[in-house]
């Protein structure tokens, strides 16, 4: 009896609990977007005099756009570097047996748990020692190396799910090891690789700690925003953040569509909602 009552009470509170959690997660984003249209700056409630002025100002602001371009460039090259080193590392972890494999695995995954401050500081000391001038190149190197571990874990997970008999079937049908890798292994890892690329891209786009140590004269977007915040907040920042949010949303939806298209199963919905 009492147990039945308790579950009844719990189920009454559950929706409110859920609403509170979602509110906690999404209210800041909603506020950010709403105030990007607010005519009276960042203050004042409720928002008044809705306007597109901040967006107009934003599009006229060259410094912001330069930093956006810098960030995009850094993120793209970082994705390239991380995948170029991360995929072979995942392959080695999955199929090769060599002395020191356990140590290698930990070393590859270490940057994932290492605080950005340490990665940034150690790279800064390295570049100082070797007289490398700080610039976007050093940031790219920083992001690329720090994010190899992300590529490795994602692709390794994909390899674990791969049916090895498929590769044997390919060899059996006359394709050599190289062809088999490109025609069977890589297509099967496609989703893992795209997933890794999107994740690395996102992480690089909003990375601050490592970038802060390695920055030269050119700002990335997060550093540009951070620099402006010190001089006071303007809704222009809200506007650029809203645009980035919309782009992220599009990227996530595209990725989701790709997965459903490839695996053709609706259960992905639940999985995506969980993550």
């Amino acid at each position: 009896m009492s147990a039945g009552k308790r579950t009844a009470r719990e189920s009454r509170w559950l929706p409110w609990h859920a609403i509170a959690v979602f509110g906690f997660l999404y209210l800041p984003i909603v506020t950010l977007i709403v105030y990007s249209f607010n005519g009276q700056g960042v203050g004042g409630f409720p928002p008044r005099n809705l306007t597109l002025d901040w967006y107009r100002m934003l599009f006229a602001d060259d410094a912001i756009w330069t930093s956006v371009l810098n960030s995009l460039l850094v993120a793209l090259v970082a994705v390239g570097i991380a995948l170029a080193f991360g995929i072979p590392a995942a392959l080695a972890l999955d199929r090769a047996n060599f002395p020191g494999k356990a140590v290698f695995r930990r070393l590859v995954l270490l940057p994932l748990i290492l605080p950005g401050i340490i990665t940034g500081l150690s790279l800064l000391m390295l570049f100082r020692q070797t007289d490398v001038k700080l610039s976007l190149v050093t940031i790219v190197l920083g992001h690329g190396t720090a994010l190899i571990s992300v590529a490795t874990t994602e692709v390794f997970a994909g390899l674990q799910k791969l049916d090895r008999a498929q590769e044997e079937a390919s060899l059996d049908l006359g394709a050599n090891y190289w062809h088999t890798f490109w025609r069977v292994t890589i297509p099967n890892l496609r989703l893992s690789i795209i997933g890794a690329a999107l994740l690395i891209f996102t992480l690089s786009m909003d990375e601050i700690a490592v970038s802060f140590f390695l920055i030269g004269r050119d700002n990335t977007l997060p550093l540009e925003i951070w620099g402006r915040l010190r001089r006071g907040i303007t809704p222009e920042i809200n506007a650029i953040s809203s645009i980035i949010f919309i782009f992220s949303l599009i990227a996530i939806v595209t990725w989701y569509r790709l997965r459903v298209g490839a695996e053709g199963q609706p259960q992905i919905t639940g999985e995506l909602l969980e993550t």
Binding site: A165, Q166, V184, P187, N188, R190
Partner: peptide, 10 residues
């Protein structure tokens, strides 16, 4: 012909 066929899903 493999036990679980090993067809290429892609």
């Amino acid at each position: 012909v493999f036990q679980h066929y090993a067809l290429f899903p892609h």
